Simulated assay, not measured.
Amino acid sequence: MSKNSKVLNLKDKISGNEVDLSLCNLTEVPVKELALFPKATVVDLSCNNITTLPPEFCSLTHLVKVDLSKNQLTCLPDDLGSLVNLQHLDLYNNKLNVLPVSFSQLRNLKWLDLKDNPLEPGLAKAAGDCLDEKQCKQCATKVLQHMRAIQDEADRAREKRLLREKELERKKEAKQKEREAREKEARKREKAEEKEKRRKEYNAQVAALAAKEQQKKKNEEKKKKNGQTADKKVVVKSVPKPRRSLIGLMFKFFLLLLLGLAGVAAACRLTVLQKEAVCVPVSAAVDDSLSWAKAQEGVVRELVQNLSSAVKEFLESTQTSKS
């Protein structure tokens, strides 16, 4: 069925401000078609197979009277309270357990029928029997009061939930700030420790350089001192050298002289040269010397001993100077 045929059929069911859609075997409400006729304030949807009302149904704010009796409704849309002009609502013989909280906003509602619905106990008590006009009016008043109480309770619960969420958020923010403060303090402490570590390393390097420099100075002073000592030793050792050399030369000269004289004397006495004129005085001198030496044997022996001791001391002093 096309949209135009729907509109045409709907027009056929409009009489004045009323739309009669009862006994049409409907499973859903033709919301779009009804929205095209804002002057149709009374809608009869009774005796159909409607199970739910779409959310768009709540946009039909021009409705004043709605009959949904004898359907299969199990729930009503949450925004039903948007039907601010609704005064008469018939929900007889459906399958409703509860009403939406927004039902309390239907402040113009004067008439309500909830008979033959499996209502929850509190709502059933507020609805009453609704067997006549008076009871149905009372039903509207009491149900509105009941739903307002539920609305207030829901508002309080929502307020508590919001407060609880705000408190949780505040605690979360406080924990976050505390954690950030701890992290900041930890970073600050780490930086301080790192700075202290670098300072100690710097001081250690400075101390090491100072110790190295001091050791270098000590080594230089020690080297300088050792050099001065060596110079003194060289001076001390070098002084006696001329003396030792002179004595040695004199000793060698004296020894050579004695050897020469002894050679001349031996040649003059033991060779054919003893008859020569040159050897006569030499032989005479040797004989005189032997005679004198024999006469002076004790003195010579003592002189030889003294000379031997002097030579021995000279040799010992030489060895000591070398060591």
Rank of each mutant, 00 (worst) to 15 (best):
A157T: 07
A154C: 05
L144I: 12
Q145S: 08
A127P: 05
A126M: 11
K142W: 10
K142T: 07
A157N: 14
L119D: 02
P118Q: 06
K142S: 09
E159W: 09
D155M: 06
C139V: 05
A140P: 12
G122D: 15
K137P: 00
A126Y: 01
A126C: 06
K142Q: 13
A149E: 14
I150C: 15
A124G: 04
E133D: 11
D129Q: 11
A149D: 10
L131M: 13
H146Q: 08
C136V: 12
A127D: 02
C139G: 05
L123Q: 04
A127Q: 05
R156E: 15
P118V: 01
E153G: 06
V143H: 06
A149R: 15
Q138F: 14
R161E: 15
L131V: 04
L119C: 02
Q145E: 10
V143Q: 03
E120Q: 07
G128P: 09
K160H: 09
G128V: 07
K160R: 11
E153K: 01
V143C: 01
R148F: 12
R161N: 11
Q145L: 15
Q138Y: 05
I150V: 14
K134C: 03
R161Y: 06
Q135C: 11
G122C: 01
P118C: 03
A124K: 11
G128N: 00
R156Y: 08
Q145W: 04
V143P: 12
E159C: 13
G128Q: 00
L131F: 10
R148C: 02
D152Q: 12
K134Y: 13
R156H: 06
D132I: 04
L131T: 09
A126W: 10
A127N: 12
K142P: 02
Q138G: 01
P118T: 12
K142M: 06
R156D: 15
L144N: 08
Q145D: 13
P118R: 05
I150Y: 07
L162M: 14
C130K: 09
K160G: 08
R156T: 13
V143W: 06
C130P: 02
A124M: 08
